[in-house]
């Protein structure tokens, strides 16, 4: 579960997040829409415990994300826009390495099973990641979080640069993870993907959550209009 309560964060006098409050329940996927500099990545970095909020509380599974980051990080899976793995290792070796860093030791079969569950076919598990597409690397990234038994997934522009097929596969995977009880927060520019995947959508503008909508209540076109309306609104 993710809880952001009345959080403020400024960098050198410039407000990045302003009185932000949001909550993502277990089994729920929330999308954060916003232009560059809207505060999406700052919010995610605060949830990861890398940035301390100026005021307000950021909690992950009931624990303070900054002061108790060593505990909260154990339950967080983070998928950045570009999952940069070690190119000289295979997909399975990358997964194994990241798992071992987390203190988890899995057999070769178990590692392959995680990769397979995240949509990476058996024949590529033994290939070096330097030969992987962006989508494939993202699947390994999700497998890393999945193998860690993450309860919270934070995704920063995950669909950016993915081809439609890979993007669709990612959506399905996220739904599957939510179905298994994960709380997912996804920051994105991609209105259509967010509309398709998320249960709840928030629109961020200049660090403020200006609108919150249920995904099922709007069509992609309506969401786009709404987004443009808030983005163009200078108030």
């Amino acid at each position: 579960m993710i809880e952001v309560d009345n959080v403020v964060k400024t960098f050198k006098g410039v407000s990045a997040v302003e009185n932000l409050t949001l909550q993502v329940e277990t089994g729920e996927i929330m999308g954060l829409l916003g232009s560059n500099g809207a505060g999406k990545s700052t919010t995610i970095n605060m949830l990861l415990g890398f940035i301390e909020p100026d005021s307000g509380v950021v909690k992950v599974n009931g624990l303070n994300a900054f002061s108790q980051s060593s505990q909260t990080r154990k339950t967080i899976g983070y998928i950045p826009e570009n999952v940069n793995l070690y190119p000289y290792l295979t997909g399975a070796e990358n997964l194994n390495y990241f798992c071992r860093l987390a203190g988890l030791k899995y057999s070769k079969d178990e590692l392959n099973r995680f990769l397979l569950m995240c949509g990476l076919q058996n024949d590529v598990h033994g290939k070096k990641v330097s030969n992987y597409s962006k989508g494939m690397r993202q699947k390994v990234g999700i497998a890393i979080a999945y193998a860690k038994k993450a309860k919270v997934y934070l995704l920063d522009e995950p669909a950016s640069g993915l081809d439609p097929l890979a993007s669709n596969e990612l959506s399905e995977l996220l739904k599957k993870l939510a179905g298994e009880g994960a709380a997912i927060l996804m920051a994105s520019h991609d209105i259509f993907r967010v509309r398709e995947v998320c249960d709840r959508i928030g629109i961020l503008r200049q660090g403020r959550l200006v609108k919150e909508i249920q995904g099922k209540d709007v069509s992609a076109n309506e969401l786009e209009k709404l987004y443009l309306k808030f983005m163009n609104n200078q108030e």
Binding site: L48, F50, R73, I76, P80, V83, F98, A102, G141, I144
Partner: peptide, 13 residues
């Protein structure tokens, strides 16, 4: 620069 450090630290290292 590649953002991998974030992933590594998130693994608890």
């Amino acid at each position: 620069q590649s953002g991998r450090l974030k992933l590594l630290v998130l693994q608890g290292e």
